[in-house]
Design a protein around this nucleic acid. Structure first.
Lengths: 343, 343
DNA sequence: TTGTACGCGTTATCAT
DNA sequence: ATGATAACGCGTACAA
C-alpha cells in the first residue's frame, strides 16, 4: 500500500455529515456550546466522532492572530536544571491546552535571535526564556508586540517582563552561613562569566558583599569559562589550596561548576569535607559522590509552573499589570562534603 | 505605554509598499526568485526590509496542508540520554529550517496519545518518537497518513517507520565480554520492565542468551520497577551478593538503573570493583563516583541527527522506500568499577 | 437558535 | 515576467 495521505477532515465535512452549517460546528468546538440546541450538539458530536475530526489549529491561529503555542528558549538544554524547569513548563502548558515549542540557544545570542524571530512568526501566545546576553532587538519586538514574556533565572533591563527564579542573595546567605557554621573560614567562590547572566552577577556580588561584611571570613571569587580540556579551574583551586591556612571551602555557582570542581578536587587528591564543597543546584549524583555533596536545591518544577501561570494571567487578564518578580528560596541539602573530619 | 500589539506586516503590505502584486512577493519568498526581474527583486527586498516582513508560517501551512514543524515525543524528558538525543534532533531541524515541537509522555500511553493527536492536528511534517507501549490508534493514523515516522530506541511492530537506535545485541556482547575478560564469572542483569519497550526486551533476551551459551558464566536477570522509596533493587542485590561465590558483577540496562544500583551498593557498603558494576548509557557523573563507573556510551547526537536525516529523505524523496533501521554500536568506556582489586 | 458571507495570510492556477 | 483570483480551514458579524 503506497502512502494514501488521508486528508484529515475539515469543519465543512463535519457540517455536511451532520446536516448543519459550519457555523454550528465551529460554535460546538469553540466555547459556545450552550448556544446550540441539545439535538444539534448530539448530531455534531456524532458526526465529528465518525470522521475523527480535530479543529485545525493553524487555521484557528491564522484567524485569531495568535496561536495556542508557548515558546520556550533555553540557554543550555543539556543542563539538568533547565530540563527540570522545562518539565514543569511543559506540564503546565499541556494542562491548559497549550503546546510547547522549544529552542536551545547554546548560550549563543545569534541562535537566540533566530529562534526568537521564528517564534514571533508563529505568533506564540507567550514566551518563557532563559536569556543569553543583552536584550536583542527581536526580544524588544516581542515585548512591544504585547506578547507576555517570562524571564527565567536571568533578568534583563529595559524589557518589560515577569521574572521567575532563585532568590540569589538568599541563596548565597544560606550557603555562606552554612559553611561558616561548619567551621570553614576561607571561601573560594567559583562561577561562570557574569556578563552573560544577571543571576551570575547577583550571586557573585552578594558573595563578595558577605565576605567584606564578615571579618571572620576570608576568601576570593573567580569567574571562569568552563570548557573541555581547560584546566583554569584546576589551577585556581590548586593555588587556593596551597595558600590557605585555615579550614577552607569551595562554593560553586551552579551545577556545571560543581561538576568541574569535583573533578579538579579528585585530581588534587583532596578528600571532600576536609576541603568543604558546596554547590548551587541539586543534581541526582550529588548524593553518590562520597561523602555526598552539599547543595542548594531549587524548586525547579515550581519555577516552570509559575512561569506559565504568569503567562496565563497576562493572557486572560488586563494588560496594565506591572512586571512581577517571583523569587524562590533554595533548600539546603546538607551532606558530607561540608562536614570536617572529627580530628 | 499600553500594549500596542503592533501587527506584523503581511505580504499584501509589502506588495503595496513595493508597488507590485502579492504574487510577486510570494514568488520572491518562495523558491521562484529566478522568475523575477532583477529590478523587481530589489524593490521587494527593500520593501520587505523596511517593514520587517516575515512570511507567516501558519498561513503557509494552511495552504500547504503541512507545516515546517517536526514533532518529538520523549518517554522521559528527565533522562539525560533523551535530552542528548533531543539536542541532536533540534540542531538538525534548525539547520534545515524546521522547528521542533516537543512533548514529554512520562512513559504514559494516555499522554502519548494526547500529544500525538495534537501533533497530528498541527500537520507536523515528521515525527521522532520514543514510543511508550503498544502502537496506539493515533500512531497508526500518523503512519497511514503518510507522515514520516522515526522510532527512537524502541521499535514497534505493525507500524511502518524508520528506526534509529543502539545495536542492543552488540551492546550486550561488548558488556558481557568485558566483564568476562575482567574476571567476573557471575553476572546480575538489572533492567526495567520489558513490556513497555522493545530495546529492553532485546537486551534482556540477549543477555540470557549469552548466559546460556557460555558455560563459563553464571548469573540471573531481573526486571524491576524503579521508584522512589522502592527497595526491590536493593533486596535483589543483597540476595545476589549473599549467594554468589565467584567474582560477580552487575550490569545495568540503562542510566536510571545504574543510578539506583550505585545507591544500593553504597548502602550495602560494597566497594565498586570488588563487585563489578557496568552500565549502559554514559552519564557525566560516572567518572566521578570512585573508582569510576564503566559504561557503554551511545552516540546520542548522531542518533538525533540521523533521525532527522531519515525524516528529510522521506520528505524530499519518493514515498515507496522500505523502512530503514540504523543501529549504532556503543563505545566501551572502561573505568575502575570493573577492575578487581589486585589481591 | 441557526445560517450566510467575508476575511485571516498565503500559494497555485490561469491569464496577460 | 507579472498579475488577478480562488482556495486552504476556521471564526464571527450580521442577518434570519
Amino acid at each position: 500500500m503506497s502512502a494514501p495521505r488521508l486528508r484529515p477532515s475539515t469543519i465543512l465535512e463535519v457540517a455536511q455529515e451532520a446536516g448543519v452549517s459550519k457555523t454550528s460546528v465551529s460554535r460546538y468546538f469553540g466555547h459556545e456550546r450552550d448556544r446550540l440546541s441539545h439535538d444539534m450538539q448530539v448530531r455534531i458530536a456524532l458526526a465529528a466522532n465518525r470522521l475523527g475530526y480535530r479543529p485545525n489549529p493553524m487555521a484557528r491561529s491564522l484567524k485569531a492572530g495568535q496561536s495556542q503555542l508557548i515558546g520556550m528558549l533555553v540557554a543550555d538544554i543539556r543542563n539538568p536544571f533547565s530540563v527540570a524547569v522545562m518539565h514543569g513548563v511543559e506540564q503546565a502548558c499541556r494542562e491548559r491546552g497549550f503546546s510547547l515549542m522549544v529552542g536551545n540557544t547554546d548560550n549563543d545570542p545569534a541562535q537566540e535571535r533566530a529562534h526568537l524571530s521564528l517564534l514571533a512568526s508563529y505568533r506564540v501566545a507567550g514566551l518563557v526564556i532563559n536569556v543569553s546576553g543583552q536584550p536583542s532587538q527581536e526580544l524588544q519586538a516581542f515585548a512591544a508586540q504585547g506578547t507576555p514574556l517570562v524571564l527565567l533565572d536571568r533578568l534583563l533591563g529595559e524589557v518589560e517582563a515577569d521574572v521567575v527564579g532563585l532568590d540569589n542573595a538568599c541563596a548565597i546567605d544560606i550557603a555562606v552561613d552554612h559553611l561558616h557554621e561548619q567551621g570553614y573560614r576561607q571561601l573560594l567562590y567559583l562561577g561562570e562569566p557574569p556578563q552573560q547572566a544577571s543571576s551570575r552577577q547577583l550571586r557573585l556580588k552578594h558573595f563578595q558583599h558577605r565576605l567584606s561584611r564578615d571579618p571572620d571570613l576570608d576568601g576570593e571569587a573567580h569567574s571562569l569559562t568552563l570548557q573541555r580540556g581547560e584546566n583554569t579551574l584546576y589551577e585556581v583551586l590548586r593555588r587556593f589550596l596551597d595558600k590557605a591556612d585555615r579550614p577552607m571551602a569551595v562554593l560553586c555557582a551552579n551545577g556545571n561548576v560543581t561538576l568541574e570542581a569535583v573533578r579538579a578536587l579528585q585530581r588534587l587528591d583532596t578528600p571532600l569535607g576536609e576541603v568543604g564543597l558546596m554547590g548551587i543546584d541539586e543534581l541526582e549524583w550529588c548524593s553518590l559522590v562520597a561523602p555526598g555533596i552539599t547543595t542548594l536545591a531549587q524548586p525547579t518544577e515550581a519555577i516552570g509552573r509559575t512561569a506559565v501561570e504568569n503567562l496565563m494571567e497576562r493572557l486572560n487578564g488586563h494588560p496594565p499589570m506591572p512586571p512581577r518578580r517571583t523569587h524562590y528560596s533554595p533548600q539546603l541539602v546538607p551532606r558530607g562534603s561540608t562536614r570536617q573530619r572529627a580530628s
